[in-house]
Simulated assay, not measured.
Amino acid sequence: MPNPSLAAFALIASIAAAATPAPAGQVIGTELAQVTIRGRIIIRVPSRLRGAPAQQPTPAQPIKWAEKKGPKCIAADQLGGAIVATDYVDLVLRGGDRVRAELDGDCSGLGYYGGFYVKPSADGQVCAGRDSIRTRSGDQCTIRKFKKLVAKK
């Protein structure tokens, strides 16, 4: 069993050492500090209006897309670009896959400023029914659902 007087002596010695001023340039004892950093991440997704000329040459035959059942959520770091229409946004993911985000309500100012913002949740995902797209003019459009786009043959 430890000696109680020995523990008390160690406590008094540590208090005395902490109260003794340190010579210049030396640190005596341990100093603890805590830093809390809070921030938010908003991802600006570059876009172009449907029918607007692309940066690269387009093929002679435009690609026709078929809609399939899409995911509930998309990892925000997978967003690469977007093509904007009035009631949906086609998201181009890293790797070339495409997902259509169908929006609730009218989002008429979406393509006016040439882009929009997506604020991922703490889990790093953008989810249908939970998250929204914010226009650069300040409007907010909730994502109703995602549909995977597959090129028709």
Rank of each mutant, 00 (worst) to 15 (best):
N3R: 15
S5A: 14
S5P: 08
A7V: 14
A7D: 06
A8H: 13
A10Q: 15
A16W: 01
A22H: 05
P23W: 01
V27F: 01
G29T: 02
T30V: 14
T30A: 15
E31Y: 13
E31A: 14
A33T: 10
A33V: 09
Q34G: 11
T36F: 00
I37A: 15
I37K: 15
R38F: 04
R40I: 06
I41G: 15
I42R: 15
I42P: 06
I43Y: 05
I43K: 11
R44G: 07
V45C: 12
R50V: 12
R50W: 12
G51E: 05
G51D: 06
G51M: 02
G51S: 03
P53W: 06
P53R: 10
A54R: 05
Q55Y: 09
Q55N: 07
A60K: 12
I63A: 07
I63K: 04
W65C: 01
K68R: 14
K72T: 08
K72Y: 08
K72S: 14
K72W: 10
I74T: 11
A76I: 00
D77Q: 09
D77S: 06
L79Y: 07
G80D: 02
G81Q: 08
A82S: 04
I83D: 09
V84N: 00
V84H: 00
A85M: 06
D87M: 10
V92R: 09
L93A: 07
R94K: 08
G95I: 14
R98Q: 04
R98W: 02
R98D: 00
V99P: 00
R100I: 06
R100H: 07
A101G: 11
A101F: 05
E102P: 10
D104V: 03
D104F: 03
G105Y: 00
G105D: 01
C107I: 04
C107H: 02
G109A: 13
G111W: 02
G114Y: 14
G115P: 03
F116K: 04
K119T: 12
S121M: 02
A122E: 13
D123A: 03
G124N: 02
V126M: 07
C127E: 03
A128E: 10
D131W: 13
D131Q: 05
D131N: 12
D131S: 03
S132F: 15
I133F: 15
I133M: 14
R134L: 08
T135H: 10
R136F: 15
R136G: 14
G138I: 08
Q140M: 11
C141H: 06
T142H: 14
I143L: 01
K145S: 10
F146S: 12
K148H: 11
L149W: 07
L149Q: 09
V150P: 00
V150N: 02
A151F: 14
K152V: 03
